[in-house]
Design a protein around this nucleic acid. Sequence first.
DNA 1: TTTGAAATATGACAATTATCATGTTTTCGT
DNA 2: ACGAAAACATGATAATTGTCATATTTCAAA
Lengths: 225, 225
Amino acid sequence: MSKCEQCIIRKFNSLNVLKKEDLIEISNCKESQIVRKGEVIFEEGDALNGVYCVRDGVCKLSKLSVNGKEQILKLAFKGDLLGQRSLLGNERSNLKAMAVNDMQICFIPKKNVIDNLNKNATFSLDIMKQMAHDLKDADNSIVNMAQKTVKKRLADTLIYIYKNFGVDEDHNLKIVLSREDYANIVGTATESTIRIFSKFKKEGLIRISGKQIGIVDLDGLRNIE
Amino acid sequence: MSKCEQCIIRKFNSLNVLKKEDLIEISNCKESQIVRKGEVIFEEGDALNGVYCVRDGVCKLSKLSVNGKEQILKLAFKGDLLGQRSLLGNERSNLKAMAVNDMQICFIPKKNVIDNLNKNATFSLDIMKQMAHDLKDADNSIVNMAQKTVKKRLADTLIYIYKNFGVDEDHNLKIVLSREDYANIVGTATESTIRIFSKFKKEGLIRISGKQIGIVDLDGLRNIE
DNA sequence: TTTGAAATATGACAATTATCATGTTTTCGT
DNA sequence: ACGAAAACATGATAATTGTCATATTTCAAA
């Protein structure tokens, strides 16, 4: 089992500001685990007794809407801390987390996090900074949902995945999502997603072979209205 | 000028957990101001050197989308702290704040807030709790935008305003917004909002006289699909 | 009080998106 | 490798929503 104080992933989140002794303390209490593609880390409504730190892999954070459709709110990856909100608000999780590919995550008990929040103002400020950033992102998502067409949102999503996760040796998007996942990210029907991807393909913007999607004309995608 | 330590508004936000001496310190530095209906408190892109605490009145927090339309993200009122995100993230405001009716607000300099965040873990935790709650709200907004029809979103908005701000002596909604404001809250065209309100009126769900809107059948509004 | 601008209202039409049906392809467990 | 289930694909059609045009009303400043 690797040690937090040696783990480079913490460079990507607020744990980076902790002192070595506190990291060692956390390291002794944490539990590393492997999560396979498709496995659920936690469900909407679960009581979380700590936070998960993503070391490797990607998961989707989603929420069921009243009409029974899943809405994907975020793709979490390397460095992301899952469940901090529920921990802070002392509430059950309002999101579900499911692995998109194989993952490595570490569970850090609530006590360790709260202790550090209580004694380390720098840590608290860094967490707040992160939350402020998340709130800004959320605002942008709301504006996009409200004002952009489905086509534009799908193009944006493809670009987002390209930028954040890159491509494999065949130049296809490294993160492979189903058309339904894409639909659940932008909030549309699966058929609409399929149709629009077909259109993108016909227009030479993307390349499709099964679930593999490659971006052919990035600027073309960017310029979609 | 009233004193923070005697101000009951702080009961509604994180300032409530501060010690009396710190409140007095803040009170000595704060600046109370009156903002008239339609006046702008800060613009998108402004550098804020503190936070505004809303004592009375309501303001809309909005953001311009790429296509030039305004998106209203929140109606802030009694107890809300404006600008804490920008302060924490050390960024310029990504929102604009404009008074919906006459307001009383207090400006608290950045230094006072940061000082208390540094020395008072309870305060920090309370702020984080508030932010966690805001993030949850934001998630719900995204789901609603993505999954609900314009009609449903407008009905929800009317109910929200009814629940949070109540009615005047004529039983009309106390907060008066233009049809354009409603459109900018739910993310639709002004004409669509006007049309749907007209429909609500015909169906006996609401009452309209000019800008005054009254809710006639709350359950009817709730049950809209 | 007048008047002109802004807000509200409504029709006609177009564009977008959802829904349902049905067929094809891919994936995955045995 | 095989068969079933899931995912993908596409057509037809309906519902929703946006856009443009044009009245009408409201409201505030001169």
